[in-house]
Amino acid sequence: MKSNSHTEQKATPIDSRLKKPLRPKKTLKELQVGDVAQIVEFSNPNDMSKKIEAMGLRRGKQVEVLQRLGRGILVKTNNSRIVITSDLAKNIEVK
């Protein structure tokens, strides 16, 4: 996966839902325990994603997946640890 996939597509959320991205984007949901990645973008911005960003999972931040249990994913960024469910994590694009 190349990092430029998102710079090419400065699409609004509506557009991204209409047409399928040319290259599949990697999301936080797909990361495995031990993976380290950087947050690129929120693909479906809403009230909840704003809260997630304010909790520290925001663009440019490096995250490490510490544990996965069921639909819950435990990630660490700087000194905070956040549990996020996979249906929220799938909207967080990472590289």
């Binding site: 909840m48 956040i82 549990v83 996020i84």
Partner: peptide, 9 residues
């Protein structure tokens, strides 16, 4: 519903 929650040290 989904959720997001902080775990303290």
């Amino acid at each position: 519903s989904h959720f997001v929650m902080e775990l303290p040290p």
